[in-house]
Computed example of a mutant assay.
Amino acid sequence: CISDLCAAGASEALAGQNLWETAITKLTNPLAQGELRGHFAACAISQGDHRKALDLLRQAAVDVETDPADQPPYLVTRARTTVRAAAQQLPDAPANLPSWAISPLPDTDIDLVNAWQAATDWDQREAAITTYGAPFPRPTLPQTLDILDFLYPDRSVIDELRALLTAADDQGLSAVLADQRAQHDTLQTVSTWIGKDTWNESFKYLADHRDRLITNEVTHLLAQSDEPVARQHLAILLLSTRLQNQDVFTIVTDPSAAADHALDAIETGHLNQLALLLQANSNIARLPGTGLFLLTVLTLATGNTDQATTLARAAAATATPLQCRANAIRLRKLHETAVPSLNGDALQRVIAILADDVPNQPPAQENTTDTPNPRR
């Protein structure tokens, strides 16, 4: 219908204008009004009525500059680019139109933005900067980014390039590129490690690249992720700074061996290591009798005493009498270590739950060959 209105002959110009104005008036959304005024302005330009087009574009610019927070980004972009496209058709750029509508966007700047957005890794982004050439940035680039940010409010590439400009201004481009290259290499190393198909391959890679993996940069990178696989590998890294690689391998691949380490950590008050062990092998938490007990202690260490009490009752209900008694003894030893993060009263309550739920049985029955290992 827009093309039909624009194609109207001279005799129909007045009627066509009335149709445009009626359609605009019926719209209640300023963004939509601005977009339609942009089309109307383009139509007026095609018919040689530049004065009418300029009046329309002034109002359209105000319309599309309204806060678009409640509008889908693609509608914002469509309305604003429509107004800019019409303004670009005027023979002379009027000073009373905003810069986002009339200022040129140099091809070199646009090529950089497009290449940056299309890049899937740092190699391609570095190539985009190299292709852009010196000097970097050119004087036009900040304004280009401002205009593109207004026209395309959902493009994260704009914020990324702005951050690059700020860093280059503070540190120098060479330093920024070197830092980004190092971050890229670190990410590639971590991704390769996490992507190994078997634990044998994973631990071999860890041994071969230990100096590159056991660093503050890698631990920070893994700690920022909410992905379970990243958290597991973070635990493996931290355990590798305290234990031999073979011991950590056994922990990851054998829940029973991992549980033995976890129970030792409780007895010695090393609750941070307990948390790492549970992250390194989550199957520990599923071991009958032991898993719920370990979760109880870990929950106590985080200060959630009510949940710890609930878990303690569940642990006592699912453990054998011998396991309950052994776990109560471990907690008494833990109490003696006076771990600062533990609530002493809550710990005593958990001990009482485990001890009270142990039925009185003759010692001979507890020592039969069928009795499970109390450490698991």
Results as ranks from 00 to 15, higher is better:
P228Y: 12
L311I: 09
N283D: 15
W122L: 15
P340D: 15
A41C: 12
I147A: 02
S3E: 13
N216V: 10
Q224A: 14
D264G: 06
F203C: 09
D49K: 10
P153D: 04
I2F: 01
R37Q: 08
L164Y: 00
A258D: 10
V218W: 05
L322N: 06
P142K: 05
A8N: 03
R231A: 14
T371L: 04
A275R: 07
D211G: 11
L331V: 02
L148Y: 09
N114E: 02
Q224R: 15
P94G: 08
R125L: 03
P340S: 13
S46Q: 14
E126G: 05
G9T: 10
S156Y: 02
L276V: 12
D169R: 00
P73L: 11
V358M: 04
V176K: 08
Q59E: 14
A352C: 05
V157M: 01
N367Y: 10
G133T: 08
S240L: 03
L334H: 05
K52C: 04
E126W: 06
L298H: 08
Q59G: 01
E160K: 06
P363M: 09
T131C: 00
V358R: 09
A364I: 12
R286K: 11
F150S: 01
L173P: 08
L173Y: 05
L27D: 03
G291W: 04
P321N: 11
E366R: 04
A352T: 14
S282R: 13
K204Q: 08
A319D: 06
A207N: 10
S202Y: 13
T77C: 06
L31G: 03
T81N: 14
L239R: 01
P153V: 07
L294N: 05
A308D: 00
